[in-house]
Design a protein around this nucleic acid. Sequence first.
DNA 1: TTGACATGCAACCATATGGTTGCGTATAAT
DNA 2: ATTATACGCAACCATATGGTTGCATGTCAA
Lengths: 117, 117
Amino acid sequence: MSARRPSVRPRGAGPIGPAPLFAALGDETRLRLVARLCADGPLSIVRLTAGSGVTRQAIAKHLRVLAHAGVVRGIRHGRESVWELELRQVAEARRCLERISSQWDEVLGRLKTSVER
Amino acid sequence: MSARRPSVRPRGAGPIGPAPLFAALGDETRLRLVARLCADGPLSIVRLTAGSGVTRQAIAKHLRVLAHAGVVRGIRHGRESVWELELRQVAEARRCLERISSQWDEVLGRLKTSVER
DNA sequence: TTGACATGCAACCATATGGTTGCGTATAAT
DNA sequence: ATTATACGCAACCATATGGTTGCATGTCAA
């Protein structure tokens, strides 16, 4: 938000990258979608909608969001569009979390020794 | 959202869990916060605010969001409150992503063989 | 050709979210 | 005792978001 502030990009620190991806995964409905997709393989929108508790249009929207984040990809097949997982970005997110973990561990170690001495 | 719909919990599928966590990480400012924390170790709010491009209050809000998601923990130390990473939930998120990846790989394999035969 | 089915598109709505300002308060420093 | 710091709380604001309904369109089946 804050469209007033002309996106002054704090000072320093380039594009953080994976944030939009996490945002895409940060919705229950969406996460349930990817769970479904990674469990049952490629599915059409109606299939995905069935038992989702929300409208077909809502599902379509979510799919587009996921697609925009590169988590999912849809191809039109006849009159239906089939959606499947795209792992690349997910892997990226994983790397991000791993980096955080290892970096924090390292810092912890540093702090510990600095206390010990 | 959808407060009207009395949280009917689709049909089947219990609490998805990690979604709120991803949501917490799904904001640039917040992600930059955890990056900062995991790089420099525990920091006070003013320290974290410096060079962030947003208000101290905004930072405080974000920290509370992260804390609520279990990514971060703050303890009051004198007149300042110091915040540090808490890795447990992050690890949870990692596991979630890994599960997705491996499950998808498995499905891919199954599909492939079913095509081959 | 006609109808059913799967989507796409658009408008609309309520609430969540990220941000701000302003003010009160506890703690540290002079 | 005063002043300066570091913070919490609350109100407010604009926009984003998740969801809906309604309708138009393309495609398969009889």
